[in-house]
Simulated scan of single mutants.
Amino acid sequence: MTDLNVRDVIIVGSGPAGLSAAIYATRAGLRPLVISSSAAGGQIATTDLVDNYPGIEDITGAELGQRLWDHAEHLGAEFEFDQVVSIDRREGGSLFEVVCEGGSLRARSVIYAAGASPRKAGFAGENRFGGRGVSYCATCDGMFYRGKEVFVVGGGNTACEEALYLAKVASSVTLVVRKDHLRAMRSLRDAVLSSPMIKVRYLTRIEGVEGESLIERVVLASVDALGVPTREELSFAPGGVGVFVSVGQVPQSAPVCRLAELDDQGYVVTRPDMSVATPGLFCAGDVRATPLRQAITAASDGAIAATSAARYVGVLGD
């Protein structure tokens, strides 16, 4: 007799990987439950403009995420808002127990697509002024700095995207780059370097931010052309400056760390079919070790993971 309280598959995460998995799982005949702790689309929802998703030339991240969510829901996927704490094997290894803050759920298979969260830069005052001058999302918080000066920490694709977005609203943008070059793709580099609103400070880092309730001083540490270290303290009116940190991601792999192999950066190591060492567990998207983390690759991961899960539970043949 089938236990209706046991899901065919539980999908953790509502980014492109998780929602793509939900779409493919329902089409394969599974009954997926998506556990989401964020808005539709996950981190993609915080992206101002997505212009590299095939077939869609110009769309906001929030709209793309909502379209994916609506598609999965239309096909029959169910959703629950909760935070996953851990995932374990139960009942002789035949079922998974997904432990959430709101309770426990059981499933024959799990697709873990919880993604990654922003990495902190580590400067003094970063934690203290989080949400009060220090931010990790330009599209989320950029409007609070309309007409103000902002700093963006980082030199990769996301940092350049953040700087270009902030250049639309801030009075000036300073991109603080530790290295002597930008690591972003050429189109982004060219856009940043040609923008009159963006100043790039190479071989520079933020040493700290200071103030009372809001940031009033930003301390920069640099190396000049002769290799001599310099220290510069910039003063602002309280609340007149913002610091946006964009220095990479931290994979949210803790709930599956006992069930899957992690690489030296904490990303889940998967096989080509998105499976891991524990049978029935599949990982997809930004949480796994992959050479490219984009919406399109995450969606592809989700499709593969769902198809693999369907085969695992016996819905699809080999």
Rank of each mutant, 00 (worst) to 15 (best):
G61I: 00
S86L: 12
R89K: 14
A45G: 02
F96M: 11
G55A: 03
H74K: 15
E91V: 15
G122R: 07
Y112M: 12
G55K: 00
G102I: 01
F96C: 10
E57K: 11
A124G: 06
L49F: 04
V110F: 10
K120F: 08
I87T: 09
G65I: 06
E91H: 14
V110M: 11
Q66Y: 03
E101S: 01
Q83W: 14
T47H: 05
A72P: 07
G92D: 05
R89A: 11
A77K: 03
A116H: 07
L95Y: 09
D51L: 03
L68N: 05
G65T: 04
D58V: 02
E97F: 14
G125S: 08
R67L: 04
I111V: 15
D88W: 09
L49K: 04
A62E: 08
V99R: 11
G55T: 02
D70I: 08
V50R: 01
I56K: 01
N52Q: 07
L75T: 09
I59T: 06
D70V: 07
S109T: 06
G122T: 06
D48T: 05
R89T: 14
D58W: 04
D82E: 06
D58I: 03
E91K: 15
A77M: 09
R90A: 14
G65W: 05
V110S: 11
V50W: 01
L49N: 02
T47M: 08
E73R: 15
G103E: 05
A121V: 00
D48V: 00
F123N: 01
K120M: 12
T47E: 07
G92F: 13
I59G: 01
Y112S: 08
W69E: 06
I56Y: 00
S109M: 06
A121W: 01
A45D: 00
N52I: 09
R106V: 07
E97P: 10
A62M: 03
R108D: 06
H71A: 10
D88T: 15
A77V: 06
V110I: 13
E78W: 09
A62N: 04
L105I: 02
R106W: 13
I87V: 15
G93V: 05
V50E: 03
I44R: 01
E73Q: 15
V84F: 09
S104C: 08
V98L: 12
R119L: 06
D48Q: 07
Q66F: 04
H71T: 10
W69H: 11
S117Y: 12
F81P: 03
E97I: 15
Y53F: 15
D58Q: 09
A72F: 12
E101H: 03
G125D: 06
E126D: 07
D82G: 02
L95R: 07
I59S: 01
G102A: 09
A113N: 11
A107I: 02
A124I: 13
C100G: 05
D48Y: 13
T60R: 04
F79T: 00
V99L: 10
V85K: 14
V98W: 12
G115P: 10
A124C: 07
N52S: 10
L68I: 05
D58N: 11
G65F: 08
Q66E: 13
K120C: 04
S86I: 12
A113C: 12
E101I: 00
G76V: 13
